[in-house]
Design a protein around this nucleic acid. Structure first.
Lengths: 238, 238
DNA sequence: TTGTGCAAAATCCTATAGGATCGACAGTGA
DNA sequence: TCACTGTCGATCCTATAGGATTTTGCACAA
């Protein structure tokens, strides 16, 4: 069903999102074609779509390269954007009663509690849970335009968060790494974020649109606050 | 500077936006290649990007086709989205004092008044002014994510508005055509919209962020109200 | 040691050819 | 008359080859 071009798109996107391709790294068409054992055409199509997603940048006669990590300004503006979109999405979800979506949201919360107990490598899993959760809320808003806007922007945040994982044990970014771990393991902001998620779902389930919106606003805001030391440590990237 | 693929992208996009390609129409790769006198490769790249823009839809092994016109639901949700985004953009522009952007906004207002007097075919020109104006406000917000989200969604509204132009003098959509013309030529909502634009720019210039946001919210809302009879007449499209 | 110029390699961009799949239509059988 | 099947045509998908441009390495001169 999925054409080769689509599979290639997913493959390259995964490579970027998992930092198989590092930010700023040059991405050759021939290189990818050899690596994925396909011809250049599907690679080109995939890269064209990825450029539209803002994940790669094309320079004519120079080829493609993965986009750099977010600057401080872009990061601030991204959270500004989230503050506009996501509270509204939560409110809308509450107004809709989020029929159908509510089950998915609760299932996601269950899942988050599970991973909180068992595995030791919790950071990545938590990031993925968080992404899924917010995506579900965007979806529950019932507004396709909002959802799409969210998804398109959120992958950049995802990219930023996962940058930590690709770093070694130390280096110039040691400070950054440390602060991230501290945030999620020591100071207990992870269970705090989970609690916020639960409250939001609760408000949506109650149909309390104002409360859902306000809770989401605060959640995004506190999430931003949690990121500030990290982004500060990361700037400038090199 | 612009590669052939980019030029092709612009060309096809223009064809769609000007309804050289009708909504729902099948778009063949070979056909486009012959018509634009380029090979298939740049066509493929362009179509891949256009699919990401939501302007065409790809069905594997069947090819591409231009997306259908907005449904009533999509239309409603689009305005819902605008109601979330644009008032915020106007507020943000006011907070920034919209340095630099203010000149562009005022120039656009000037331009709008000019076309209001001279030419007889004012409808298309007004639509284009309106698109430019709102795009300028989105830009003046200083937030690239917001601006991009706006642009990506707005082209669909643009498409919808221009559908009128592609219609003949009569037909099943005569009612729709009539209502649109009535809106803009008879009942004087065009100068009303222009007045609203001026008030918004004025609020931005004053740095009155709350007022700018509220004015924009009302403007979008009244714009939506103006569209209701039109969208009602257009549904179902066939 | 540093800067300039030439040349070669690499890579992107474009074009064309061949293989595969899907839809349509005609023909046959019940 | 309806249903099924096989062939035909069109189109998409993939692969490879050639032309153009940029970059890089090296030699040479100041």
């Amino acid at each position: 069903m999925a054409s080769l071009a689509d599979q290639t798109y997913d493959a390259i996107k995964s490579m970027i999102l998992d930092h198989g391709i590092s930010p700023g790294q040059h991405v050759g068409i021939d290189e990818l074609a050899r690596e994925l054992s396909v011809s250049q055409t599907p690679i080109r199509e995939a890269l064209a779509r990825l450029e539209s997603d803002g994940l790669v940048i094309k320079t004519p006669l120079r080829g493609y390269e993965a986009t750099d990590l977010l600057t401080v300004l872009q990061f601030d503006q991204l959270f500004e954007f989230r503050t506009v979109i996501e509270p509204w999405a939560a409110s809308a979800a509450a107004r809709l009663g989020a029929r159908g979506s509510l089950d998915a949201l609760r299932a996601e919360l269950e899942r988050a509690e599970q991973i909180g107990r068992s595995s030791p490598s919790t950071y990545l899993e938590f990031v993925e849970h968080d992404s899924r959760f917010h995506a579900l809320v965007a979806n529950a808003s019932g507004n396709g335009w909002v959802e799409e806007s969210f998804v398109r922007t959120h992958c950049h945040l995802h990219l930023f968060r996962l940058y930590r994982a690709s770093l070694g044990d130390a280096g110039t970014h040691g400070e950054f790494v440390e602060s991230m771990f501290a945030e999620y393991y020591d100071t207990g902001t992870r269970p705090l974020a989970l609690t916020e998620h639960e409250q939001i779902v609760s408000a949506i389930a109650d149909g309390a649109d104002d409360r859902a919106g306000e809770l989401m606003r605060r959640h995004v805001e506190s999430s931003r606050q949690r990121f500030i030391p990290a982004i500060a440590a990361l700037n400038p990237p090199r």
